[in-house]
Design a binder for these strands. Structure first.
Length: 420
RNA sequence: GUGGGCGUAGCUCAGCUGGUUAGAGCGUCUGGUUGUGGCCCAGAAGGUCGUGGGUUCAAAUCCCAUCGCUCACCCCA
């Protein structure tokens, strides 16, 4: 049996309604905040991501789906959207069009990680990017937007965590300080953290090792290394959140894994999913546009994992079962009436009625069971002595009432169904 | 990449101190008088017991390998 590739999933018909509900929620809120949708290709030149996200990050160094195509170009399936959106922003010279662009997307992403609860190799994200302003208000709006979508979808048990990573110079100084602090404690660190000491020292804060946590609780904090300006930006973001009464906690351990973040970073976590509890993450990236060859442009954004949101929703019981519905089911009483039924279905469907019939030559009883299972509002019997007289019989599946109607002119049936 | 758990019917699972034709519930299908659903009743279909090897008179059951799923680490959304 051929199976779906590891880490990919089919979304089956009965799961679609929740996906659509989430997509609609996203579209709604995005429009309230005046974000415009953007769609970019599924794959890009590899260099876009290696340069944008950072060569040393896990995503680039070991998780990308990269291949050489027939024209010898190195292609990569997008592992995230920000780099692509920025590429489009630069390529189409959007900065010339207007100062600020507020963009959103809903799309699939690809990363070759080991699958687990809330983590797939092909997964879906929605997100927003506001390119062209350094206003702390926009950072706050970004958090408000992400939070509003999750709330509006029906999620509870959410926590917002924010932090500031400052600008690169400040961060470098902090890293140096951190290295000094950890130097004589190095041997006490876990094996993973020893590696992180070299690769990405900030990530040691993320460690779940008890000893590491103990060591890091005494470590210097990034907020103490921020400049006046960075600190002011951070304070403003917080005050805007306070103004609109959005609760958050400052988490100096919140370190994003992508290289391009500057100043504000945030994450929204849920206690309703497994270990992969971050439903949403984002922050400011003021240097990325320039780094990718565009004009120096400040920007901020976020991305949210749709599978995780859906999972949290199921675990919280906030999902809404959509009742299957059918306006009318046509029951064929004798095999010979096939053509008549087919013609009637054509008329009803042309008039905008959800119509179904039997394709398996089953008994009347079986057809009725089917109509019931499909939750048909009405059943129309075609055949028998009534049909000989030129009539069809309409049955209301709720009340059980039946009435004879002329087969030639189905207008009364149609208007009855449309009016109810 | 590392570690734990699990692979028996479409689904959820039982059976696993080795022993005749491998079970249940749900679902599906067909019937319960000429042409009518839901509830109820009856019957039926449906399984290479993940795959390959080994031990044995005998393997779903024990051993090994392999593949897959899953959870966690890692990382991230």
């Amino acid at each position: 049996m051929i199976k779906a590739i590891t880490g990919t999933k089919d979304i089956l018909p009965w799961q679609i309604s929740e996906w659509k509900r989430l997509e609609k929620t996203v579209e709604n809120l995005m429009s309230y905040f005046n974000y415009k949708e953007i769609r970019t290709p599924t794959f890009e030149e590899t260099v876009l991501f290696s340069r944008g996200i950072g060569e040393a990050t896990d995503i680039v160094s070991k998780e990308m789906y990269t291949f050489i195509d027939r024209s010898e170009t190195s292609i990569t399936l997008k592992p995230e959207m920000t780099a692509s959106v920025v590429r489009a922003y630069i390529e189409h010279k959007l900065s010339k069009k207007q100062n600020l662009h507020k963009l959103y997307y809903i799309s699939s992403m690809y990363r070759q990680e080991r699958p687990q609860a809330g983590r797939l190799r092909e997964f879906h994200q929605f997100g927003a990017e506001a390119i062209g302003s350094n206003a702390p208000m926009l950072d706050a709006e970004m958090i408000e937007l992400a939070y509003s979508i999750l709330k509006s979808f029906g999620l509870k048990n959410l926590d917002i965590k924010i932090n500031s990573l400052g600008v690169p110079a400040e961060r470098e100084q902090y890293k140096t300080e951190l290295r000094n602090y950890l130097k004589d404690k190095f041997e006490l660190l876990s094996e993973d953290s020893k590696k992180r000491f070299e690769t990405n020292i900030l990530r040691i804060f993320d460690s779940k090792d008890e000893k590491d946590i103990e060591i890091m609780s005494e470590a210097p904090k990034i907020l103490d290394f921020l400049s006046e300006e960075s600190l002011k930006h951070f304070e403003e973001v917080k005050s805007y959140l306070d103004e609109i009464e959005i609760k958050y906690s400052v988490d100096y351990k919140l370190v994003r894994g992508l290289d391009y973040y500057t100043n504000t970073t945030f994450e929204i976590v849920s206690s309703s999913v497994g270990a992969q509890s971050a439903l949403c993450g984002g922050g400011r990236y003021n240097l990325l546009i320039e780094q990718l060859g565009g004009p120096p442009t400040p920007a901020t954004g976020f991305a949210a994992g749709m599978e995780r949101i859906l999972l949290a929703c199921v675990n919280e019981g906030c999902n809404k079962e959509e009742e299957a519905s059918l306006d009318i089911y046509l029951v064929r009483m004798e095999p010979a009436k096939k053509t008549a039924v087919f013609k009637i279905s054509n008329t009803l469907r042309k008039n905008g009625l959800k119509t179904e019939m039997d394709y398996l030559s089953r008994s009347v009883k079986a057809q009725m069971r089917e109509a019931n299972r499909m939750n048909a509002r009405f059943v129309l019997f075609v055949g028998g002595e009534e049909f000989e007289k030129g009539s069809v019989v309409l049955k209301d599946m709720e009340t059980g009432e039946q009435q004879e109607l002329p087969a030639k002119d189905l207008t009364p049936v149609i208007s009855k169904l449309k009016n109810q």
